[in-house]
């Protein structure tokens, strides 16, 4: 099989059942940051990053210097009071950290930008609530236009770097839910293509130990997941005729029937990317030294 990144819970015995894999480890407790890298390393696996769902603001975390070398994804509710973030900036700016903030809280549109402008990579997390499209467009513009260097804001930065003018560019990988890149396993070692599948018991393998001999390309569920986008066209859904489809792949389809905001946003995103690509192509290739 092609190497996949495995998203798994923090479980040492689970780590020992797999080897030579790249792991994204979901932590239960923030204090586990201190030991996760060593535990993964001892099991002969590589740590891509540790993910923690923090039920409060980023400012409520007391960051430690020993976390600086651990690749981290922190899902927080918001940034929190800027003064408290500022007091920890000397550590935060040196950390291998990506902060995930949900867009159900309007303040997070601004806070993602604040963090990015201070050199902290951040990611907007889309939730069931309809985004504020104008604020989202502003955030996307800031993320992509790069008027002055700042840390990446995903998923916009991700799409901008992967964008191909003649193809589709999805961004589910930013949230570890792209089946072409990630497999998800639970404590029992069951393997699924997504965390949703894992939760509802839809496994492609019952035991992680079977992974080495598994040809995922021959798995019907995998093929189905890869071609899921086609249903938009088969069902003739509104997203299938949207210009911005190529950069959203129906991510906001639940809002498409009731709002023009999603179409306007995706179309503008696409226009900026294409314009940027065109400018890039027009650049003179310099003579070589």
């Amino acid at each position: 099989m092609n190497p996949r990144i495995i998203v798994c819970p923090y479980n040492r015995s689970l780590f020992d059942r797999i080897s030579n894999q790249i792991l994204v480890v979901q932590l239960n407790d923030i204090e586990q940051i201190g030991s996760v890298a060593q535990d993964v390393s001892h099991s002969c696996n590589d740590l891509r990053c540790a993910v923690i769902n923090w039920p409060s603001s980023l400012a409520d975390i007391q960051f430690k210097k020993e976390w600086m070398t651990v690749p981290l994804a922190i899902y927080a509710t918001e940034m929190g009071p800027f003064r408290f973030i500022a007091s920890q900036l000397n550590i935060l700016q040196q950390m291998n950290l990506r902060v995930y903030l949900p867009l159900n809280n309007p303040i997070n549109y601004t806070e993602l930008r604040i963090l990015s402008s201070l050199g902290i990579a951040s990611t907007a997390v889309f939730v069931s609530k309809e985004p504020e499209w104008e604020a989202l467009t502003d955030l996307m513009t800031y993320a992509v236009m790069n008027y002055y260097p700042h840390a990446p804001i995903d998923p916009f930065h991700y799409v901008a770097t992967k964008f191909k003018p003649d193809g589709y560019t999805g961004f589910s990988a930013v949230y570890f839910s792209d089946p072409t890149k990630f497999l998800h396993i639970n404590h029992a070692g069951n393997v699924s293509l997504s965390s949703d599948d894992l939760q509802c018991g839809k496994f492609i393998l019952n035991d992680i130990c079977e992974l080495d001999d598994f040809e995922i390309e021959n798995c019907p569920d995998y093929q189905e997941a890869l071609n899921e986008w086609r249903t938009f066209f088969i069902d003739n859904r509104k997203c299938s005729i949207c210009q911005g489809w190529r950069v959203c792949l129906g991510r906001f389809s639940q809002f498409a029937d009731t709002s023009l905001g999603c179409e306007n946003f995706s179309t503008e995103f696409l226009e900026i990317l294409e314009q940027d690509k065109m400018i890039g192509q027009k650049r003179i290739s310099l003579w070589q030294l």
């Binding site: 601004t110 402008s117 008027y147 002055y148 700042h150």
Partner: peptide, 15 residues
């Protein structure tokens, strides 16, 4: 002054 505008001004001056 909003946060967004403050960031824009900061970027503008820095650049």
């Amino acid at each position: 002054l909003s946060w967004e505008n403050l960031i824009y001004v900061s970027d503008f001056l820095k650049s």
